[in-house]
């Protein structure tokens, strides 16, 4: 039986931003369905890991493979096609929440899959958001709501890989649980950055990052 290739593979990856080394040569891999979290102090390079996978920063050294292929133009396009990145302050990019949810469907890549009103409401409810939020102005929604709207947009796009940067930081207990429930789905792969102990406990794999290096890797359930 052939061994399944990891979905994501970082091998001695170094990244420098404005001449400063942010990642010093990290290595890890993840399979489809894994839930992983990076922890560490501010400036340790956690967000850089997520952004490097999306092709936002060039590699100073090392290699990144996705589905066994090294990063190039077509692989980056494939990652962006199947991944959703949700940051601490997600940009909704539209005036109303409805327009924000429909924004990606204006692009050629998703133009044929515009969701119905019912589908949008269902996605919002999954994340404990009321349907009335659809007509609300994006500038009037809270940080936590913005994060969940961005997540709902990912769900509507049928994304299978979620790159989450402190997504539960602005959530109350109930909303946090709703987000946990969504990512309990074994089909979804999660690579995240978090300090929240509840979120860390949910993730099967925990990486501690310090000064651009992985100092410890734990698998939840390990003694």
């Amino acid at each position: 039986m052939t061994k399944q290739l990891p979905l994501i593979q970082f091998d001695q990856v170094g990244v420098s931003i404005h001449g400063k080394a942010i990642l010093a040569g990290i290595s890890f891999d993840m399979n489809a369905g894994d839930k992983a979290v990076f922890r560490g102090k501010s400036g340790a390079g956690k967000s850089t890991v997520l952004k490097t996978l999306l092709g936002l920063y060039p590699l100073a050294r090392g290699t990144v493979h996705f589905q066994g292929k090294p990063l190039d133009k077509s692989v980056i396009a494939e990652i962006r096609r199947c991944a959703a990145y949700i940051g601490q302050e997600p940009v909704l990019g539209a005036e109303t929440v409805r327009d924000a949810l429909l924004l990606p469907f204006q692009f050629k890549a998703h133009s044929g899959n515009k969701p119905s009103e019912t589908t949008m409401i269902k996605a919002l409810r999954t994340l404990h958001l009321p349907e009335t939020i659809l007509s609300q102005d994006c500038s009037r929604v809270s940080g936590g709501e913005k994060q969940r709207i961005a997540l709902a947009r990912g769900l509507l796009l049928g994304k299978s890989l979620y790159l989450l940067d402190e997504v539960t930081s602005a959530l109350d207990v109930e909303s946090k649980q709703a987000v946990f429930d969504v990512f309990a789905d074994p089909k979804l792969t999660v690579l995240s950055v978090a300090h929240d102990s509840d979120w860390v406990a949910l993730c099967g794999r925990v990486f501690d990052l310090e000064g651009g290096n992985i100092t410890e890797e734990k698998r939840n359930g390990d003694a």
Partner: peptide, 16 residues
């Protein structure tokens, strides 16, 4: 920049 990157990550081509 964040808005531009969001568009890219939502499937927009460079031109879009």
């Amino acid at each position: 920049e964040n808005e531009y990157l969001t568009y890219l990550l939502l499937g927009a081509t460079r031109w879009e």
